[in-house]
Nucleic acid binder design. Structure first.
Lengths: 137, 137
DNA sequence: GTAAAATACTACAAACAAGTAGCATTTAAT
DNA sequence: ATTAAATGCTACTTGTTTGTAGTATTTTAC
């Protein structure tokens, strides 16, 4: 499993937005609340729009708002759209051939853990994430 | 969890060597058996020597051999020496502060999976890895 | 209709990871 | 001794990811 910094940023954005599911967030507003470089954040927001998680509203009172119900957006979908499925699914030894026609020496040892990772990412939607302790993330 | 390509290479090397625990392997020999760029492999072997997993024997009949019993070498130790512990332990949102004084919004959702990952890496030694199906890794 | 506040696009820059090259050193075979 | 085969060191090159900048476009307030 390989979670890029950009995927982590995407999580931060969408998890933050999920706190008030129906609200409209401007890039600036998000930047003030989560620690992601402003220009990079804006580019990422555009990408997340194109992926269909959120939609952008242009113009003076514009911003970003969820494009579909947050109970239908899973963590796996987010990683998949940013990093690609391979980043999660890849063999722990990095062998391309593993998992198709044969398995690598570490396959069995790692299989259960990998399953657990994929299972959690698949089953957890943005709706399932609740803030605890602090509100300032 | 973030496993660099280099960590995967390290796994390949050590897992391969573990097939014949007491044998001496030259860089060239390893290169012929596992798919890692030759010069990069050699540099990595030197690093793994310095980390104390293997020891190098210089000179004409030289090579690399395990420096300690492979039952004492865990996967976590290997990742730790190559990528650092942070790569495993890092918060899924990438927040530095998470896990110290407070927890991020995804902390609870991810905690169990993270535990599983660390647990598996901690409990699995090179001795525990057995080859299955194919021998040519 | 003009200005302000927002997103969109595209190119560039910096930082980091991965891979390569040259030469030095060590040791064994001959 | 000389040569061959191995590792050790250090610098360089390439590729990828992350971050920045400039300018265009869209829409609302006035």
């Amino acid at each position: 499993m390989n979670l890029s910094k950009t995927s982590k940023y995407a999580f931060r954005i969408l998890v933050h937005m999920a706190k008030d599911e129906k609200a409209l967030y401007s890039a600036q507003q998000l930047h003030q609340n989560i620690d992601v470089p402003e220009r990079y954040l804006r580019r990422l927001l555009t990408d997340l729009s194109k992926s269909g998680f959120i939609k952008s509203i242009q113009g003076r009172q514009g911003g970003f708002i969820f494009a579909r119900d947050i109970s239908t957006i899973t963590l796996l979908q987010i990683v998949e759209s940013v990093d690609g499925l391979d980043s999660i699914n890849e063999c722990i030894l990095g062998y391309d051939s593993c998992a198709f026609d044969y398995s690598c020496p570490m396959h069995d040892v790692w299989a259960e853990t990998k399953m657990k990772i994929i299972d959690t990412l698949t089953k957890t939607s943005l709706k399932d994430i609740h803030n605890n302790r602090l509100e300032d993330f």
